[in-house]
């Protein structure tokens, strides 16, 4: 369980997340891609804390902040999905060409 191995696993999760966020058409699936990217980031942050900081709580703080980011992302993402559906009846990216209004 070396740092290198952990970073490679985190990179794999992040890469799959990038693929999902870029390739999916459905808003909710794009959110899943973003969450997977954050999942990889949390793993990287946690392993950095465990193996390089000598137990300084600052590393754990970073993971707490990342979890906050994830919660905000989920709340705003779900709200935007509802909002866009109400106004435009759109559930995939191709249906919103204009961002205004």
């Amino acid at each position: 369980m070396t740092l290198q191995a952990l970073i490679v696993v985190a990179a794999a999760l992040f890469g799959i997340g990038v693929y999902g966020a870029l390739s999916q058409q459905s808003f909710v699936m794009i959110m899943m891609g973003l969450e997977l990217m954050l999942n990889g980031t949390i793993l990287a942050g946690g392993s950095m804390w465990a193996l390089t900081t000598g137990g300084s709580p600052k590393g754990q703080m970073l993971v707490v902040v990342l979890m906050t980011v994830m919660a905000v992302e989920a709340a705003m993402g779900f709200a935007l999905v509802i909002g866009i559906y109400r106004v435009r009846k759109a559930d995939i990216t191709e249906k919103i060409k204009r961002l205004k209004g």
């Binding site: 740092l3 290198q4 952990l6 970073i7 490679v8 985190a10 990179a11 794999a12 992040f14 890469g15 799959i16 997340g17 990038v18 693929y19 870029l22 990889g40 990287a44 950095m48 465990a50 193996l51 390089t52 900081t53 000598g54 137990g55």
Partner: peptide
């Protein structure tokens, strides 16, 4: 996706991090 995986994995494999459990 592949490029971001390779970039981060290379960072993990080749960068030198302090070791302090």
């Amino acid at each position: 996706g592949v490029v971001s995986f390779l970039a981060i994995a290379a960072l993990g494999l080749f960068a030198r991090f302090p070791v302090a459990r």
